[in-house]
């Protein structure tokens, strides 16, 4: 059977939030700019990046996601997320290892209501005619610089965003422990571009993904979309295969 992750869930929770409640109302964020840069990664550590509930994709992948909302119910914010592409049983998913978000209501909402592993920072999403980029600095050091180069328009329906499995400490049946929280936003895309993917800086230690090396660019996309963050419907025990460890709420 396929390779399972072998990371200790406890070691994946350095930046994991504690979610006081899973009773999250859905929320629509209008006109969000979304940059997604996808790379293949070095396969030697693919199993160490995921808990036993998840399988690495073949080949293993990295999703760098930058989002910027200029307005909306959570106010203006910019978010950078690093995810490892994976499967929960047969479902395409991504496991965020760390996210950096500008301070404000969005950061706490994303953390508390949807389990994003948020650190407050100043990610910058830049939009140019010849490229779009997401950058994150830790002090004076660039820990992330990823770009889409030479954008060309594609159909709004050509894009597929995969859901996230967010590791968070969740209290359930009197016990607080790590669970994988399924977050499957809906994207209503109004504009989409595709282009060459390029990562110029990536500090795997900062992103809590030790030894993760982006090695082969796949593609980058840049969209404008209404994103509906969902109610939480499923959680999964990170130690069990998702097919048997998933719990419907």
């Amino acid at each position: 059977m396929p390779i399972n992750g072998n990371a200790d869930p406890g070691q994946l929770t350095q930046y994991a939030p504690t979610m006081a409640s899973l009773d999250t109302e859905a929320l629509t964020l209008p006109d969000v700019k979304v940059l997604q840069v996808i790379y293949e990664i070095d396969d030697s550590v693919m199993a160490e990046l995921l808990p036993p509930a998840l399988h690495p994709t073949i080949p293993p992948t990295l999703h760098v996601i930058g989002m910027r909302a200029d307005d909306g119910p959570l106010g203006a914010f910019t978010l950078a997320v690093v995810r490892v592409g994976c499967r929960a049983a047969v479902r395409p998913r991504g496991l965020p290892t760390r996210a950096v978000c500008t301070a404000g209501e969005a950061a706490s909402a994303l953390e508390q209501r949807w389990g994003f592993p948020i650190t407050i920072g100043e990610p910058i999403l830049r939009e140019r005619y010849d490229r779009q980029s997401i950058e994150v600095n830790d002090g004076n050091v660039a820990v992330l610089s990823a770009q889409l180069i030479d954008p060309v328009p594609i159909g709004n329906g050509d894009l597929l965003y995969t859901a996230g499995m967010h590791i968070a400490n969740v209290e359930r049946d009197g016990e607080t422990k790590p669970w994988l929280v399924q977050v499957d936003p809906e994207f209503e895309v109004s504009r989409a571009d595709r282009g060459q993917a390029q990562i110029d800086a990536f500090d795997s230690n900062f992103w809590d993904a030790p030894d993760l090396r982006p090695v082969y660019p796949i593609v980058a996309s840049y969209t404008t979309a209404n994103i509906t963050l969902p109610r939480i419907r499923y959680i999964c025990d990170p130690l069990q295969p998702a097919i048997s460890g998933t719990v419907a709420l």
Partner: peptide
């Protein structure tokens, strides 16, 4: 399901 369909990435 473990493979990567073109459309996904």
């Amino acid at each position: 399901a473990q493979l990567l369909p073109v459309r996904e990435v």
